[in-house]
Every structure is written in structure tokens, then in C-alpha cells.
Amino acid sequence: MNPSMIQMIKMKTLVFLALMFLQDATAVTHSLKYFLTASSGVPNFPEFVIVGLVDDVQVVHYDSETKRAEPKQDWMSRVKEDDPQYWERDNQILQGAHQIFKGNIDILKDRFNQTGGVHIAQKMYGCQWDDQTGKTSGFSQDGYDGEDFIVFDLKTETWIAPTPEAVITKHKWDNNKALITQWKNYQTQICPDWLKKQVDYGSSSLLRTDLPKVSLLQKSPSSPVTCHTTGFYPNAAMMFWRKGGEEHHEGVTLGEILPNNDGSFQTSVDLKAPGASEDWGSYECVFQLSGVEDIVTKLDKAVIRTNEGKTGIRSDGEKPLDFTTIIIAAVAVLVVIIALAGFFIYKKMNPKRSPSPVSNPEVLEELNPGA
């Protein structure tokens, strides 16, 4: 496979995972998500990776090179206090999952009439819980080489095959009523229970509110003006441009909400540079975070940081981030995102123990219809 094709697959993978990773909800909606990746032909990258997130904060990581499930937040140590064998049990299960995923990539390559090359099988699953209404919802979605492959519809209790190559898997899994019952139980009972427990474990950090630092940035006088915010929490935020007191949409490009390495978030919104004759002071960048007063930053040429060396002022009075910092942060985010998705295996456990959210018993089905 030529380098351009490899790059295309990697970029499609990033888009697929980013869309899954950034499923947001309101300020009172919590989420538990697992992203799994199995890769073939990717140099210097583990064949199998799992990342778990609570409210989009990474809490667990596993890969086929370390063969260890590792907590990424100090408060996750409470899991072992409640269940001393939790991590060791998951290590054994996930080591087996690695082999399942390697087999599934071979099956998928055969389905798509492929030989060799770079290929990535992905999975995202988990649940959401509204702590005010008590409403819960679950999700499970598989992808291959950056495209949707098969999705579980909890409402109809059936599998959706968006590509012809997945139809054979859909028929197999639709006919496996035990599998459907187990997935329904996982999404409606096991996953929400674990989510509530982990929100309680990490309440001191997960339920906090952090205000952002805001910067006005511009590459050149004719480039769009970027209003960039970073360091806010939670991620249920909105940002937009306002002109003359009214929300302004013309020439505006809204960026995605992306995670920072410290568990906070960043986002940006671009505005086509106003003309020389326009009143720049009539434009305002507005950042909204539930429960706090709007943060409003007036568009002022004097505080915009540009490649021409203007210093600029942030809303907190500090020097703003430059474009190099933003690019580095974006690259770091992509590294985290690409380390997501795949296929997983479940193992029968002692019913006296609380089932692990990663390794819910007996739900895994291989893609091979003859398995």
C-alpha cells in the first residue's frame, strides 16, 4: 500500500474516532466510553489498544505491548479497594481479546477482498446517564478502516449493517438472542451502574467547574480571527461570535471541543476578519459554561496575537497561547484519539463480584459466522 493510501486510512480513522469520542451531552449527563483499536501493518504502534473514559476524561489504558490495564486517575485506585482482583482479571481477559481482534482483522480483510496493507478495526461502546432525570442510554459501534461497519440499536434490539460486507455479521448476531439480551443488560444495567460508581469515585474532579483562558489569535491581517479557549471543564460548553449584541453566523467556523492532557478541554471559533471600515468593537466572542456567567471578549486589534509579533492579552490578563502551542496540543489530541477503538472479549466471572465495565461476561461474538 502506498504512503498516500496509508495516510488516507489514518486520517479517516481519526475522523471516525473523533466523531465517536466527542459525543457530548448536557452538564448533568455523564458518560462511560471504551474505545478499542486493533491494527495490522502499522509500524511502531501496538496491535491492540484500549482506552476508557469517564466524562471524556481518560481513566484506564491497556495495550498489547505492556499487557497491563493501568488506571490513569488516582481515584481509580478505589476500584481495587472494592475488588482486589479487578485489574489482574481484566489483564487476563484483554490479553485474550488481543488474539480475537487479530483474527477479526483477517476476517475483515477477506470480506473486503484485501491482502496485506495497513488496516484498523475499531469499536466504541458505553453508556450515558443523566444525574437529574435518571435516564440512561447505551451504544455500541464498530468500524473498519475509518468507516462504520456495524452498530447495535438498543431500541429495536437489532444490529444495523451500513455496509454490505457487514450483512453476514448482522444476520449472525440478530439470530443470537442470548447475545442481544446480554448487550441490552450491559447497556441498561451494568454500564450505568459502573458509570455512577466511577462518577462517585472521581466526584472531586469530575464534578468540578474550571473557567477557561481566552485568547484572540490571527495569522495575518487578512486571516480569520480565532477566539481560542482552553482549560475549561466540563466539556458541555458553547462558544460563538456576537455582533451588535446579536449572535453572528456569517463567516464563522466553529471548532470541535477537544481534550487537553490535564483532563480539561479546549475549543475555538473563527471569524472572517472584518473589513477595515467595519467597527471591530461591535464583535464579541462569547463563551458559555453551564452554571457560570458568560465570558465575553471584545474584538480589539490591540490584543490580537498575530504572526507579526503582537503580544495580545487574554481574558485572565496573561499572555495567550501562540499558534505553535495550539498545533502541538492538536497533535497530542490526535495521538490520544488514534489510540482508540477495536473489538473486545468478555469472561465469565464470579457473580459475587461486580462485573467489570470493560469485560462484561460473555458478550463477545467473533465476526466469523462459522465460529
Rank of each mutant, 00 (worst) to 15 (best):
T324H: 12
T26V: 06
K172M: 09
K10L: 14
V49K: 10
K155R: 07
N360Y: 13
Q132A: 01
E250C: 08
S354N: 04
R89W: 11
T188R: 02
L340P: 01
S31R: 13
V49M: 02
E318N: 07
S77G: 03
I9Y: 06
F344M: 05
R68D: 08
G96M: 10
S223N: 03
Y62L: 00
S31P: 03
T324W: 06
I180A: 05
V303T: 14
L17P: 05
K109Y: 07
F112A: 00
K301W: 04
F45A: 00
Q128N: 13
L206A: 00
S220V: 03
W75F: 12
N235E: 10
Q266E: 15
T230P: 05
I328K: 10
L94S: 12
L32W: 11
T253F: 02
T267P: 06
P192V: 05
G317I: 02
A69V: 14
Q114L: 14
E147H: 12
L367E: 01
G52W: 03
M8G: 03
N2M: 06
D148I: 04
G231N: 03
D63Y: 10
A341C: 13
L299H: 03
K243M: 04
I120H: 07
I345V: 12
L94M: 14
T306N: 05
F101S: 11
S205F: 12
S39W: 08
I93V: 11
D193A: 09
D148P: 08
I304M: 00
S222A: 11
P221T: 10
S356R: 05
G251F: 08
Y34G: 05
M1R: 08
V296C: 06
K243I: 02
W280P: 00
G251E: 09
T181M: 09
F16D: 01
M1A: 10
F240E: 05
W75N: 04
V79N: 04
M5L: 14
M239Y: 11
W75D: 01
T156R: 09
D55A: 02
K319T: 10
V269Y: 07
S205W: 07
G126D: 07
I168S: 02
E256L: 14
V199R: 06
W194R: 14
M11W: 05
P162F: 02
L206R: 13
N176V: 01
T163V: 15
E47Y: 09
K170A: 04
L340H: 13
K67E: 13
V28L: 11
I93E: 03
Y201F: 11
D174N: 15
N260Y: 12
